[in-house]
Amino acid sequence: MTNPSDRVISDIAPGEFDTGVSSGRKVFGNVMTGLVFACVAIAILPLASIIFMVIANGLGRFSPAVFTELPPPPLVEGGGFRNAIVGTLLTCLIGALISVPFGVLTAVYNVEFGRGNKLSQFVHFCTNVLSGVPSIIAGLFAYGVVVLTLGTFSAIAGGVALAVLMAPIVIRTAEEGLKSIPRDVRQAAVGIGATNFQSVFSIILPAALPFIATGVTLALARAAGETAPLLFTALFNQYDAKGLREPIATLSVLIYNYAISPYKNQQELAWVAALIVVLLILAVSILARALTSRKVY
C-alpha cells in the first residue's frame, strides 16, 4: 500500500505561488491599482470639501430658530429663514406638479405608443436639447410667459421655470423605467386581451413606478438647488409670501443674496441655508436610491 501523497507530482518552483513575490507584471498591476484609487480620491475631493466647508461654517448657527423665524434686518442679530424653506418646497412642488404628469405621459408615448417612429424620435431629440438648455434660459422663458402675463414675480413663475428643468430628467428616467419592463410582460398583458391602454396603465406603469419615483426625486434634488431660473421669476421676499401670486423667497436665492451682503449675520445665515440645501439634496438622493432598490425587474 503506497501513501497517496507519494503519487502527487509537482513542478512548482518554491515560492512561485506566493503573493509576495514581485515580477514586473505584478508591480505594474499594483501601480495601476494605486493610480485608480488616487483618481477616485481626487474625484471625491470636491464633494468632500464642499460638505466639510458647509458643515464647518453652517453648523454653528444651526438651530430651531432658522426654521421658525424670518430673516432679520441688517445689523440685527439672530433670525432664520422659514420663508425661504417654505418657498423652496413650494416652488419645487409646483415644478413637480407640472413636470411629472407631462414627463411621464411623454415617456409613455415614446416607449409604448410611438415605439421609435418619427414623432417619438423627434420628441426624444427635443428632450435631449431641453436637458442641455442653460437654467437661466428656463428662467427667461418663465419670465416671458408667466411673469409678464401675471404682471408679478411669483411662486408660480418659479415653479414653471423649475418644471422646464425637471421635465427632461423625468422623461428620461421614466423612459428607462418603462424600457426595463420585460417584453414578456407586455405580451402577457396583450395576450389575455388587454387593450394597449389597459396594459400600459394597469401593468406596465405600476411596474415602472419605482423608476419613475426615482426620476422625480432626482429632478427635485436638481430643482431644489437651482438659483438662476428663480432670480427673476420667484425673485425674493423678506417676509412670508401671502399667496402663490407674489414674490417668494427660496433657499438658493437667499444664499445668493446673503452671501454677497456685507453683514456678518446674513453671511452666517447663508452658510446655514447652504447646509440645509445640501442636507435636503442628500436626503432626496438617498430616498431615490431606496426607491430604486424596490424595483420589481
Binding site: 410582460v185 405580451q187 402577457a188 398583458a189 395576450g191 389575455i192 401593468i203 405600476p206 411596474a207
Partner: peptide
Amino acid sequence: RRRVGMVFQKANPFPK
C-alpha cells in the same frame, strides 16, 4: 386574443 389565450415560454406573471 380573448378567444385564443396564450401561455409563454418563460413564465411571465404580472408584477401583482
